[in-house]
Write a protein that binds this DNA or RNA. Structure first.
Lengths: 286, 286
DNA sequence: ACCTGGTATAAGCAACACTGATGGACCCGC
DNA sequence: GCGGGTCCATCAGTGTTGCTTATACCAGGT
């Protein structure tokens, strides 16, 4: 169960080929073959079926573990190295597309004004990657978002001990195409929309809605990106409904159930320094 | 960041000595010294101060990560191996001291009656160890408990992807010595007891109460074990108050805040088989 | 100053993990 | 049905790693 072997196992499973994985990892095909064989004899089980290469049941189980494990390893390394790093006057903020709403953008501005010498680099990344990047030390601070009941924390993939603070909760609106029969309402109940056609997008995952409300939410167009502007255009063209935070565009307020768009600041334990000051600036009512 | 090295690092930090750790791990002192040196050069930082041996700041950070990391590794291995194991007709159930309350004991009896061929081994372990043992494959099913708001999940240390189901929620009572001025009440508010003297015990950790209610809860005797019988004797002798589930003994019901003693069944993803059937039997209203 | 308990370093050796070459299984087009 | 191509398994060879043993080094107690 050497992480080294785990890494090539993941690469092989992803690539669907020993040779391709070998190339990607800078090994020879022979080395990869031997590494997989070593893993399999160690566990006493075949992990991959060959030709075509696909995980066995045991392999699939291992794959589920491997990702988080390798992430935690990177996180541990990054966390240790951070203790030695001088307080940088240049730091990276990773934010999911909907996370940096107007309120937070304003707080970020205030935070930057407090520390004029500080160079901030902002990066927009996929919602799932924010925590991973922060854990791995590729970003110093992260902002993720999601839909929850008021004051409930977000469900994030585990990536080691990190601080998570809710920094914003905002009303949700149902985005509708102009001229939609419900567009004039002052509030909508989600339960009344279970039979509507919904946009399937990572920005408002339908599984999450089904978790919260129940079955339904038929998928219309399946949009794989995370670009808010594009999503609004898709909604306007009638490809399906979606939920957005009120600040992200017009829509009819969601009256029930009580759900909010929540943004969380995620960061490793910070020593006092520029990063900690910026984190404080991003926190509410500071 | 080889787990091998991580393991000896943890051992050295715990033992407080290279030589002692070497003996414990079956290495020579020289090997341990080299392993620690390898870790330190890999990370580019000193992790331990020598003579006396104690972690540096970076080392302390690494220690925080190492435990969970190694646990997850064991969990991954156990989980993979489980896919190959034949459905055993002998399985182990790990339970925290307060987890196997009368209701669950009854359900366990029913579950065993359903599968007369099944040999069940029950083991009582520390509350924190239950999840770890299940993750590591040392137990097939686990029962943990804790104090939460109704229908809130317990806060458990992360040990990989495992299913957790609430199987019991029960009223809490304040255990008081006989003849205590409040003993005759029909209900007590926790807020009225913040200034009382409380037993410090893992069965009802005072930090948890402070989390839920606020400061206060002065510690009386510090009891390190998890034996319920002993705790009740300590309460009776006036060493301090404590909270217990109603089924664990007499006491005055806790009227506010609304807190419950919750028991959760924790298990890895189970293929259909005896373990899954027993898990179903332990689940509520089955 | 000397001994004791402890960590670091040096040399030697066995095991490991890679490379490169070869062999065998399968797929495909002809 | 045959030849070529693709892909994984295996083998032999080799450099590296990681252990052990032996020894140097360092601090504290006597």
């Amino acid at each position: 169960m050497d992480p080294h072997l785990l890494r090539t196992f993941v690469a092989v499973a992803e690539a669907g080929s020993f040779s391709a994985a070998a190339e990607r990892l800078g090994y020879t095909q022979s080395a990869v073959s031997q590494q997989i064989a070593a893993l399999e004899t160690d566990l006493g089980l075949p992990l991959l079926r060959r030709r075509p290469v696909e995980p066995t049941e045991a392999g699939a189980r291992l794959l589920e573990h491997a990702g988080p494990l390798l992430l935690r390893l990177r996180a541990a390394r990054a966390d240790v190295l951070r203790t030695a790093a001088l307080p940088a006057h240049r730091l990276t903020l990773a934010a999911a597309p909907l996370a940096l709403n107007p309120a937070l953008a304003a707080r970020l501005a205030r935070g930057r004004a407090e520390q004029p010498r500080l160079r901030v680099r902002l990066r927009t990344t996929g919602r799932d990657l924010v925590a991973a990047q922060v854990a791995a030390g590729e970003a110093d601070l992260g902002l993720t978002d999601g839909i929850t009941a008021p004051s409930d924390p977000l469900r994030l993939p585990d990536s080691g001990p990190m601080t998570r603070i809710g920094v914003s909760e905002e009303e949700l609106v149902v985005a509708l195409p102009p001229g939609h029969p419900l567009a004039g309402r002052t509030g909508l109940r989600l339960a009344d929309l279970v039979d509507a056609r919904w946009l399937a997008t990572p920005l408002c995952p339908l599984e999450r809605l089904r978790d919260l409300v129940g079955d339904g939410f038929r998928a219309g167009l399946d949009y794989q990106g995370e670009d808010v502007h594009t999503v609004r255009n898709l909604v306007a063209a009638g490809h399906g409904l979606t939920l957005l935070p009120a600040s992200a565009g017009p829509g009819v307020p969601l009256a029930a159930p009580r759900l909010v768009h929540r943004v969380e600041l995620v960061h490793p334990s910070l020593p006092p320094g520029p990063a900690a000051r910026l984190a404080a600036a991003l926190s509410p009512s500071s």
